[in-house]
Design a protein around this nucleic acid. Structure first.
Lengths: 122, 122
DNA sequence: CCAATAGTTCAATAAACGTTGAACATAAGG
DNA sequence: CCTTATGTTCAACGTTTATTGAACTATTGG
């Protein structure tokens, strides 16, 4: 059971620093897209963004700064955004960042490989 | 005449990275407060936040990422937030971050020394 | 012209960061 | 039980970062 900060422990500079890395921004973006559906993704769903050990490093940062939560289930770890906590703590920040990221999706290479293929198809 | 990126050259990760440093966040916060009044501040107005050479380093970062603009006038350099460009490029981001910073002002040590003194007085 | 003021630039240092591959842990399926 | 799949941890590395003080530039005011 990995470390998660409480809502009150979440700090703005850490959150912004986490979001400032392109890979982590892409992870958060992908989690935000998933919010409309199941709201959870597991590590493997992000394989388009880098190698496993590098992703594990970024997952840990995202967890420790309070941006996401990890639930262990079998050999999988399911993740979701801590939207309620973030909206309570820093109202509007997450939304504005994700919307801006969406606007720059191509520039930021925000889509995972499989999504890119889907986008090409249509 | 120092380098300033064009509006289109401003990138989200760089902006977030700039805002993730406590000193730079304090500079931006102070510039945002000043927007209501003269909208410009010069380097010396931030002396509460650190030494001159360290501030010059942070000023350069803020300029190069597009967060602020520097106008040279005599021996002074006047700075202001590039609010129009930022709002056009990343709507809501700057506002949400500044509001969140204001909420955490004490935790973030956002006030310069003289402002702290003023706050103590009242 | 000289001194003081405002701010930048440079070199040096220590710490933090992102990336890699190999080793490890754990649970699921045959 | 053994293998496979999922994901983390560790050590190593090169890079970037923030911070310092000293040297420097340029402008203002006497």
């Amino acid at each position: 059971m990995p470390f998660h900060p409480t809502r009150e422990q979440i700090e703005l500079p850490m959150v912004l620093d986490c979001l400032s890395d392109p890979i982590r921004l892409a992870i958060v973006y992908q989690l935000a897209q998933q919010e409309r559906v199941s709201s959870e993704l597991c590590c493997g769903d992000f394989s388009g963004l880098g190698g496993k050990s590098n992703l594990a490093y970024h997952f840990a940062k995202l967890r420790e700064c309070g941006l996401m939560q990890t639930r262990v289930a079998g050999t999988n770890r399911f993740m979701r955004l801590r939207r309620e906590d973030l909206d309570a703590r820093f109202p509007g920040v997450l939304d504005a960042v994700i919307k801006s990221a969406a606007k720059d999706a191509d520039r930021l290479q925000l889509l995972s490989e499989c999504e890119m293929v889907d986008a090409d198809r249509k």
